[in-house]
Write a protein that binds this DNA or RNA. Structure first.
Lengths: 219, 219, 219, 219
DNA sequence: CATGAATGAGGCTTCATTCAT
DNA sequence: GATGAATGAAGCCTCATTCAT
């Protein structure tokens, strides 16, 4: 696979596919379509959902769809970008007040669980993204990881986190978040029980904090 | 979502969909089809791959497919089961000689990277599995996690690993494996560089080993 | 075989399969399809006729078919119902002015010959109906017989027809109509010659009229 | 439609399609296939039954079918001819001892009911015959009618039956038999109740017997 | 004789997209 | 702006028939 830089992708994706509405009435239709798409793709998966499903759900005519989106793929991309923004800002908000990075990590994961519980579809959507448009999928995680790594780097500079490769750490933490969220919010539709969360947080904490003897850490 | 027990699923999936060949000639065809399916699904994704793609690749007529598989879905399920078995036994073999659990963990991840590099398709296949047959996807990870947790439990009993919730730990480790494998073997087609691996292993080691003060651990 | 009441069947068949058009343009297409179906099924028989045959004949695209009918079977059922209505009202009209039942019977058969000559397909369609949907076939004849028997019953009350089991009589008369129509309009494409018709009418007349001695008749 | 003479048809159909077995073992297989075909075509109808259905039922391999029959159609034709022979000889036997034609008519119909009850499939098979091979269907009824008419002609000469067009009469009687058999043996799986049969027989008797005044009869 | 394997034409159906109103 | 109609490519699948063993 050969991926562009995440930002590069965004720039490419910027222009195409979507025709913004010009009137108030148009805007309402546009939003109804996007909303319907989230529901339908969430229930059915990209390939098994049809455009008629979406227009029916939105309560508009079939032709109307193409007034705003150039293709099925385009509304999907639009949707992923929208949700990506939502997760990140949601987590951001939940973390904001926590000063220490290690504690922020825990808060972030907790927030991710909460978000996942509300948007169980998100999971399916991202999964589908790979098949539909690998670049989109790549961008989704890579841009996430980048921001993550930057925050970790800063924490290392402040001495809150052991000094190691921040990107590797970012992928570890994302993997933990995603897989534990799969186990509980997605599969069981519940927040994980205390013992489970306790273990997860304990594992992360021990893994992140600077050890006294510093073996294996960079200076 | 409401999933059955992993073993329950296996039993269900046992019977249907596949018709085993009765002659030597038939067996060869059967295998060619399975092999072709792995390639095609790897390249294209479940929904965009067609049965003709598979039969063409296998060099057999279109109707031949239906001699052995009742539908596209059935060959897919068969494939996943096949690959699941392959990964697990591959990793098992690589770990066998390592006595210490923490070191075995590292060896296991390293093995997973190697396997992923060889079967980059596996990644896509499992992803698609969710859309195609959620139970299959659930079974894939859940049965993996179960075995994982058992090994961890044993290690805890031997005092090699801190005594915490083994299942939670299993999902953490799986998440780390999968996401770091995505970053390098899948996206870059290479084994991760030493610094990356070092960080990952360090993180895991610190997270697993019993701490001297035992805070947060069960007795 | 286990058949529902004819009316019951109609009610069941009411709902499904057909989507009525919403615009004038759509209505024209719908009718063209129905017309084409009659021709094609008449020429080829249900199983050997394909949907493409129908859409080609109708001069529309293949997909258009599914805008109005859910399946081949559905257009077939629709057609039979349509033709059933046509025969009955055609015969009704031809009989209307004849006051005496025995003469009406002759007029009815004559009318049936005429109709059959125009719609030789009808014959084949009804035959196929058994294979396609036994209930439809049952309904076709049973509802016919029911109306028939009622008319005969009334004639018995007026003393025009010997008082016997009206239903049995109805099936006798239907059998005669159908088989003699087969012999001439269907096989030869002609109305039967005078001598043939004379014999048929004579047979019926003698069979229906109240005999002077009343042996075997109910009071 | 343009039909050949019934005998002409038979001669045509004589040669083709069937390869008689040469050994004892072969004969057994041949018969098993024919038997299986009757069952399967009876249950499913010609077009919906597949050759695999037949070979499975017969317990032989798929290829074996073509050792004895050149095509699906050929076994069907063979079957119809076989059954046609069966009905006629069965009825013949039942009528044999009845001397008077009018009584023989009743006995014949009764026999037809009995046969139909045993071979409900016959009904479906003949129906299908039209679609599969119109000539076969034509032959089936026409040859039946021919023999029928001859018997009636003889009875007219003996003064037992009114002198009218014997062929017309034959089709009337066949129609009555077939439709009343449909009403009871086929639809209800029972012999008709006494009142029903009484009416049918009364109708026929009155229609057949020479009237005192001879109006409408030939000299 | 017998059989399982193999085939490919052809049927039904779906659906993203374009048109006409 | 909006909508229902129309399209046809493309996919899945069945099955009569032919082959190879």
């Amino acid at each position: 696979m050969n991926f562009q830089d995440p930002e590069e992708f965004l720039r490419l994706a910027e222009d195409s596919g979507v025709t913004l509405p010009k009137t108030k009435r148009g805007e309402a239709t546009f939003n109804r379509l996007l909303q319907a798409a989230e529901e339908v793709f969430g229930e059915k998966n990209y390939y098994e959902a049809s455009i008629v499903d979406i227009t029916n759900r939105a309560g508009v005519g079939q032709g109307t769809f193409y007034l705003y989106f150039k293709s099925k793929k385009d509304i999907f991309v639009e949707l992923i970008k929208h949700l990506h923004h939502e997760v990140r800002s949601f987590i951001q908000r939940e973390i904001a007040q926590v000063s220490n990075r290690v504690d922020a990590e825990k808060a972030g994961i907790e927030a991710f669980y909460k978000f996942t519980l509300k948007h169980k579809d998100l999971y399916k959507l991202i999964r589908d993204a790979e098949g539909v448009e690998p670049n989109l999928w790549y961008w989704y995680y890579a841009s996430f990881a980048k921001a993550y790594a930057e925050r970790l780097k800063a924490a290392m500079d402040r001495g809150e986190v052991a000094r190691v490769d921040p990107e590797a750490l970012a992928y570890c933490l994302m993997g933990i978040s995603v897989f534990t969220a799969m186990r509980w919010p997605v599969w069981e539709g519940k927040m994980p029980p205390g013992e489970f969360t306790g273990t997860v947080f304990g594992f992360i904490t021990k893994g992140l904090v600077p050890s006294s003897d510093k073996r294996g850490e960079k200076k």
